[in-house]
Design a protein around this nucleic acid. Structure first.
Length: 425
RNA sequence: GGAGAGAUGGCAGAGUGGUUGAAUGCGGCGGUCUUGAAAACCGUUAAGGAUGUAAGUCCUUCCGGGGUUCGAAUCCCUGUCUCUCCGCCA
């Protein structure tokens, strides 16, 4: 959520920010509601002040033996007016609230202006030693590999739950678990994160806090009976750890890493890109979340990307980094890098991680602050998160890149101690 | 799922209709004392909003929502959460 005061004082800047994000221009609507709101506050506060004065006057009159009947009658009228105007005020404020909740964050000045994913900028490409985009033999895609080695069973997953719910079997299941453990350990040992294992069903306040709701509501699963949402990403519970809290500045930055399954309905996205692992309803992800001081958040974003790169370089997976343009940025993000890994069978890059700085957009919604040590005042914190990484897309890249000409799959060396085997055959 | 108790400032904990934004203790901050620290003593210590160049003034907030009343932390209804007991259970 954005700051009303900021919008009021920088409305043209804000208007341009909305346009850059391909978003509806709601500036004038916000400004006029805000004006109405302030005028109502001015008038009700005046009446309330009058009422408060009478409140201390009445007992004093009684004590002095005077008859307060006239004051009581007058205050009855004042009270009715207050009730009426408070109702009006509430209505105006809830209108404002709805608009603000549906209004996206605006992007940072370093983000390239653009309309679609075509306008994203590739900032880096990293290829392991000896890698070539051309293969000396016919590579199989991850679905065929999964079938051949009996490590992924999409058909049975569909039987159990429906399409998009992959079943890992045998060495596939072990490899998946190894990947998760490797990534968690790496972030813990080399990048200074604390581990969390969060709940995977969360309440509505949490979903609103990180901005999945109301905008993305249709893409979320919902357990109606209990009013709980299966999380689309661990970002939701982990960011909400500190919802409504004021953190001590000396403990910042607070950095968490956690594994969770992720659930996404992906409404209306059947067909294209939906085969195998490319788009699923349930997948596993290791997620990093940081709470930082505002002036450090863009440095922390760069570090977050490096944390992801370290994992991919250790796994020796080819990847590239995209800086998303304004039009391709998500609702809550001010700046975002996507990290994509190479799929030789698809002959294209697959998004495996997304690292974003939300500035104080989520912090405002979730009311997460820190106490500024100099001023002693609470200020909104900046939140960031990044996938480190999602295993499904990563698994595609590992299986396809590590297949050998003689029909086997090698296991990346850093995973050996986690898998207990070096080859899948 | 059933029965009962409770939710107050950073924490503990008073307060049952009228100067109570809230006693007291702890903690935090500033000071006196001390070579320094501790102890002791004194002072100070919430958030949000409106208005104003500012100093300030005003409003709101005692879990959330609704109600009674001139006036609610306090009374009524409702929701959420926590605790205790019973039931069920990995």
């Amino acid at each position: 959520m954005l700051d009303l005061k900021f919008i009021r004082e920088n409305h043209e800047l804000f208007r341009q920010g909305l346009l850059n994000k391909n978003s509806k221009d709601v500036v004038d609507e916000i400004l006029s509601l805000d004006e109405e709101r302030r005028s109502l506050i001015l008038r009700t506060d005046d009446l309330k002040s009058k009422r408060n004065q009478a409140s201390s006057q009445i007992p004093a009159m009684k004590k002095a033996g005077q008859d307060p009947t006239a004051v009581l009658a007058e205050m009855k009228l004042v009270s009715d007016q207050i009730t009426q105007m408070d109702d009006q005020l509430r209505e105006v404020e809830s209108k404002l609230e709805v608009i603000l909740r549906h209004t996206p964050n605006i992007s940072h000045s370093s983000v390239p202006v653009g309309k679609t994913a075509d306008d994203n900028i590739e900032t880096k490409q990293w290829l392991p030693d000896g890698f070539s985009f051309k293969n000396s033999f016919k590579v199989l895609d991850h679905i065929e590999l999964g079938k051949r080695f009996r490590i992924l069973d999409f058909e049975r997953g569909t039987k159990i739950s429906g399409s998009g719910f992959p079943l890992y079997i045998g060495k596939g299941a072990t490899l998946e678990r190894a990947l998760i453990n490797f990534m968690l350990d790496y972030h813990l040992q080399h990048h200074g994160y604390s581990e969390v294992l969060p709940p995977v069903l969360v309440n509505r306040e949490s979903m609103e806090g990180t901005g999945q709701i109301p905008k993305m509501e249709d893409d979320m699963y919902f357990v109606e009976k209990d009013g709980l949402y299966p999380i689309p990403t661990a970002e939701v519970p982990i960011t909400n750890i500190h919802r409504g809290e004021i953190l001590e500045e000396k403990y910042l930055p607070v950095k968490y890493v956690g594994y969770s399954p992720c659930f996404r309905r992906e409404a209306g996205s059947y067909g294209k890109e939906s085969k195998g692992f490319l788009r699923v309803h349930q997948f596993n992800k290791v997620e990093m979340v940081k709470f930082v001081k505002p002036e450090t958040s863009y440095d922390e974003l760069e570090k977050l990307v490096i944390d992801v790169e370290d994992i991919l370089q250790a796994l020796k997976i080819p990847y590239r980094i995209l800086l998303l343009c304004t039009g391709d940025l998500s609702f809550s993000a001010a700046k975002c890098y996507d990290i994509e890994t190479w799929s030789p069978a698809e002959n294209r890059w697959l998004e495996a991680s997304s690292c974003s700085n939300f500035e104080n957009f989520q912090a405002r919604r979730a009311n997460i602050r820190f106490r500024n040590e100099e001023t002693k005042k609470p200020e909104y914190i900046h939140t960031l998160n990044g996938s480190g990484l999602a295993t499904s897309r990563l698994m595609v890249s590992i299986l396809e890149n590590y297949q050998t000409e003689d029909g086997k799959i090698k296991v990346p060396e850093v995973l050996w101690k986690y898998t207990g085997f070096k080859i899948i055959d």
